[in-house]
Design a protein around this nucleic acid. Structure first.
Length: 399
DNA sequence: CGATTTTGACCAGCGC
DNA sequence: GCGCTGGTCAAAATCG
């Protein structure tokens, strides 16, 4: 836009006005002979008026730019609001979906899950024809960025996601349960992709990957305990990036949440989850609970041991030496020797409160494990013990 | 015939 | 560098 065309109009008026008052100016010039300071003032005045007009032009230009920006922001706000409403409606329609998405969101693949929804792309309708990024998860400024900057941003985001995914994949949740079945029924579809003889165990270890969706990163290992072959050790790794059936939702939620709780000590944000310290304090509220910490695990692992009676259920919190935080000794309020392989029988205060995150997780687990009666009973007993038997959802679903 | 399982080969990490 | 071990790949076999 040519600003001179606008301000030039005013300039013309100014000079035409000046010509009209030419006679008056002459009189003024006569007067100026006796008052020379006014002559200087007149030049200064003319100069400052031009400067002011130029400044006005710049302000006008910036004003227009700000309007465009405001339009972009408004559009993005409306898009986000519409998206939020759609999500809220979706939640109202499906209670299970709420749980599933809540815990899927804990993982690094959440963005994929959200992006995969069939939400139509909202196009900008107000404020002009400028193309504006409407991705709800993306930033407002992308639309004004250059291609190179967009690629850079996308690359950074991908790196971040890859990093988080790698971290999440390393976290494992292991479930020990007595079962004669070759595999725990957890509601998911698994495909066996390998089997190995593990050292020190005559029973082979089977490797499974989730086949409910192509590209799902979740894997699990199934192995019988060498000491007691009636004990089945199932180790889950990763977070599902797809919707799950109700029967599988809670188990996936539990493993995902447990992994997130475990990792939250080293990760920046896990959406309101507890860190390992809080996990330990929450899970060990009663004097009958015991914690076992192993420093020998290659990956940070939460182990749910459901092989004991309800009075002696254990939750083992395993951390590899590399990931063990320096605050580890504070977890149990007493000094801990890092090289020690196991710590048992640590007592916690029964007055510790229980946040909704854990109770939700545990109640979700109880809702899901009804497929296998033995496993269901064992896990329900463990959960009851963990929660002190006071959680209504637990009581309702574990009977 | 497609999906799943089996199984030997291959690779990476780790300790010596 | 070498061997061991855990984990994954992929071709062949099997199943429904």
């Amino acid at each position: 836009m040519n600003m001179n065309s606008i301000n030039g109009h005013q300039e013309m008026d100014f000079f035409s006005e000046d010509k009209k008052s030419n006679k008056g100016m002459r009189n003024q010039e006569l007067d100026l002979k006796t008052t020379p300071w006014l002559s200087i003032k007149k030049e200064d005045l003319t100069m400052s008026l031009e400067a002011m007009q130029a400044e006005l032009g710049r302000m006008d230009e910036e004003n227009k730019r700000l309007r465009v920006l405001l339009s972009q922001v408004t559009n993005n706000y409306n898009t986000l609001q519409a998206h939020l409403l759609a999500v809220m409606q979706q939640r109202d329609q499906s209670g299970h979906e709420v749980v599933q998405r809540q815990f899927i969101d804990l993982g690094p693949t959440v963005n994929t899950a959200v992006a995969d929804t069939d939400e139509p792309s909202h196009s900008s309708t107000a404020g002009g024809s400028q193309e504006i990024s409407t991705s709800p998860s993306n930033n407002i400024e992308v639309g004004s960025l250059g291609t190179e900057e967009k690629e850079k941003l996308s690359s950074n985001k991908n790196n971040e996601q890859a990093s988080q995914e790698a971290t999440m994949r390393k976290a494992r949740v292991s479930v020990r349960a007595r079962s004669e079945a070759p595999m725990i029924t957890d509601g998911c579809q698994w495909r066996k992709y390998g089997q190995k003889m593990a050292k020190g165990n005559p029973c082979p270890r089977a490797y499974y990957r989730c086949t409910m969706a192509t590209g799902c990163p979740v894997r699990k290992q199934v192995q019988r305990c060498a000491d007691d072959r009636s004990i089945l050790i199932t180790t889950y790794e990763g977070t599902h990036n797809h919707p799950l059936p109700p029967a599988a939702t809670a188990m996936a939620s539990t493993t995902s949440a447990a992994a997130s709780m475990l990792l939250s000590g080293s990760m920046s944000s896990t959406d309101g989850l507890m860190n390992a310290n809080f996990l330990a304090r929450t899970i060990l509220p009663s004097t009958s609970s015991m914690a076992t910490i192993s420093a020998s695990a290659p990956f940070p692992t939460v182990t749910l041991d459901l092989t004991h009676s309800s009075s002696s259920n254990q939750l083992q919190l395993n951390r590899s030496p590399a990931t063990a935080p320096s605050s580890l000794p504070n977890i149990f309020g007493q000094p801990v020797v890092h090289n020690q392989s196991k710590f048992t029988g640590l007592q916690m205060s029964p007055e510790t409160h229980r946040p909704s995150t854990l109770t939700d997780t545990v109640s979700a687990a109880t809702a899901a494990i009804t497929a296998d009666p033995n496993f269901s009973a064992a896990l329900a007993a463990a959960i009851t013990s963990i929660l002190g038997g006071s959680h209504p959802t637990t009581n309702a679903t574990s009977s």
